[in-house]
Computed example of a mutant assay.
Amino acid sequence: MAKSMTGYGLSTTQFENTTITVEIRSVNHRFLDIIPKYPRTFLFLEDKIKMLVKNFFSRGRVELHINIEGEGFVQKSISTDWKLLDQFIQQLKVAKERYGLQGEIPFSVLTQLPDLITIQENEEKPDNLQENILACIEDACLQVLEMRIEEGKNLLDDILERATIIRNIVRSIESRRENVIDEYRTRIKQRMEEYIEDPITVDSSRLHQEIALLAEKGDIAEEITRLHSHLDQLEEWSKLEEPIGRKLDFILQEMNREANTVGSKSTDTKISEWTVAMKSEIERIKEQVQNIE
């Protein structure tokens, strides 16, 4: 089954005044690259999160964002350094007596003292927090997977459609092959006659042998056979349930190589045009395959 490497998933769950939101974005990549982004307090879950994501995907760049908020998760409290405050008040009294200062100490002065009053955040992790985070991630992964499967079907339909076009081009080249060989032999014979300025007898077995060898070098029968074989393999691999992106990329490289050989061997204008069209379709398939897992 062909799966795209592009997908998106968003899952939210609420429990005990806590809200967990998981957002996953997936794009194409040569390997599986998981990039988790969440509060540092949940680093202990990193291995479990990566193992969970690996159960769904084998290739692609997967960005995973986790946001956790709620009153039940973070409790704030105020702490006062009473010893520091006592020392400050005592020093102010000493200063008043020493310099004869008048008036009361304003309360606003106390609030401006650094480190006197601090606000502390105490994270309270509910008992089932880990299970809820992993369940939320799993739900988002399922959404991404569903999107990747749907887009993979569309990509595969386009690939197989273009593979059919290539197959028809190969058949057209194959149908013209015999005529090209005959024309090639005739052209070789005419050039040799012009060179030696004497008609060549058709009964000359040695000469015909040499012409046959030269014509064989320009024959594209083997390339046509391999192209048919590669197209059969492409169609066969497209039915596999496992990831097929790398397999398709390999077979397309081989097809492109055979197409280049056909183009370099052929001196026929029509075959050259068909070869260019075939290479164009191969390149378009390669672009689509770059996004298949």
Rank of each mutant, 00 (worst) to 15 (best):
V74S: 11
K76H: 13
K153Q: 14
F57H: 01
N122R: 01
L142R: 12
Q102W: 09
I224F: 06
T267S: 15
K270Q: 15
D33I: 05
R171L: 13
Q75V: 15
I166D: 00
C136N: 08
S77E: 13
T41E: 14
H65C: 00
T275N: 03
D81H: 09
T41S: 12
C141E: 04
E124N: 15
A212Y: 01
S4L: 03
E174W: 02
S280D: 08
S266V: 09
E254H: 03
L248V: 06
L64A: 02
Y195C: 12
S172A: 15
E210Y: 04
L64D: 00
N122H: 06
V276A: 06
G72A: 09
R30Q: 11
K125R: 14
R171T: 14
K83R: 05
F42H: 07
H29Y: 11
L84P: 03
D157F: 08
S175I: 02
T41G: 00
A2L: 06
K93V: 09
V22T: 09
N128I: 08
I196Y: 08
E121M: 04
I224L: 13
L101C: 06
W237F: 15
E138W: 04
R59K: 10
V180D: 06
I133C: 03
S229Y: 03
L92S: 08
L92P: 01
Y99L: 14
L110S: 03
R148M: 07
N132H: 09
V27D: 04
D127E: 15
Q75I: 14
N55A: 09
T225W: 00
E23K: 14
T201V: 09
L160R: 04
R191Y: 02
W82S: 13
D219W: 04
K189Q: 13
M1E: 10
Q87T: 14
E197N: 13
L213H: 10
A2T: 04
S280L: 03
V109M: 15
D157H: 11
T186W: 00
R30E: 09
L45G: 02
R148L: 05
I35A: 10
A277E: 14
N67G: 10
V202R: 02
A259L: 10
S4W: 03
